[in-house]
Nucleic acid binder design. Structure first.
Length: 263
DNA sequence: GAGTATGTTATATG
DNA sequence: GCATATAACATACT
């Protein structure tokens, strides 16, 4: 469930359910997913504390308290749900926050997700060396952080230390919107296209958040509605192709995104 | 069994 | 430091 729009959707969901509610009890069901903290650290930070808000940076979600925050990363398959019935359970629950008004569950079949107690959002962002959040980064900074790079546009946009929040699916969408082949080296991307990438990054992320990350409800012309090799390109009808770029499967239109010199 | 999967990190190589 | 490739992590599904 987890690139920036999914995490932002989860944040809003957590915010509406947890705000001003107190933590009654914490159950760490999978200590392997704890990051740089013991179950006791987490319990001490959370027990009896009132939630004062939520935050997000890239794909990282934060549930805020007076003197620290619960940091959550959903990995590849993490999801969060809230239930009025404290006895509700999920098939792969890894963390349970028993609140006054119900229970928040982190469910994650693949266990690539992580959670822990941090002093602040800034601490976590600094310790991971994350770049600016993809949704709030100003155009000038976005451009500045890309220029001078030599790698492929796809690998660069997926690098969380350069820009935080974009993953495999949304980068494919953004590159499709800008008609750029995922393998295009940064030096071959015109300045105007870099500015276009910033605009598309915003519009794609915002569009997905707006439809609650339900790809079928995205506007026409979005690759994510039918992302699969062989599907028709929403713009020209050609069969979409897949290629490995930066170790990840990339879906693109061979007609609309043919600007890469090496093909 | 093989191949794939929305992510991150360590390691090796140039 | 930069860039690339690979494996590893742990699990589900086709």
């Amino acid at each position: 469930m987890p690139e920036l729009p999914e995490v932002e959707t989860a944040r809003r969901y957590v915010h509406s359910n947890l705000l001003h509610s107190k933590v009654v009890r914490v159950e760490v069901l999978d200590p392997l997913m704890l990051e740089r903290c013991s179950p006791k650290d987490l319990q001490d930070g959370l027990q009896g504390k009132e939630n004062v808000g939520t935050g997000r940076h890239g794909k990282n979600l934060f549930v805020l308290f007076q003197d620290g925050a619960l940091h959550l990363h959903l990995g590849m398959s993490g999801s969060i749900s809230f239930h009025d019935d404290m006895d509700h359970h999920r098939p792969h629950e890894r963390l349970r926050l028993m609140m006054e008004n119900g229970v928040m569950i982190l469910d994650d079949p693949r266990r690539f997700g992580r959670f822990g107690w941090v002093r602040s959002m800034d601490d976590l962002v600094a310790s991971k060396g994350l770049g600016p959040d993809a949704l709030s980064v100003p155009k000038e900074e976005f451009v500045r952080r890309l220029e001078g790079r030599k790698g492929s546009i796809k690998s660069t946009l997926m690098n969380q230390r350069i820009i935080a929040g974009l993953g495999n699916l949304y980068v494919d969408e953004i590159l499709f919107q800008e008609s750029l082949h995922p393998r295009t080296p940064l030096p071959d991307v015109p300045h105007a296209s870099i500015c276009g990438l910033w605009r598309s990054t915003r519009s794609v992320l915002e569009a997905s958040i707006e439809v609650g990350t339900d790809f079928e409800r995205l506007p026409r012309g979005y690759l994510l509605r039918q992302r699969g090799r062989g599907s028709p390109c929403p713009r020209c009808g050609s069969r979409l192709e897949a290629a490995l770029v930066g170790g990840r499967t990339s879906v693109f239109c061979p007609e609309c995104q043919r600007n890469c010199l090496e093909g």
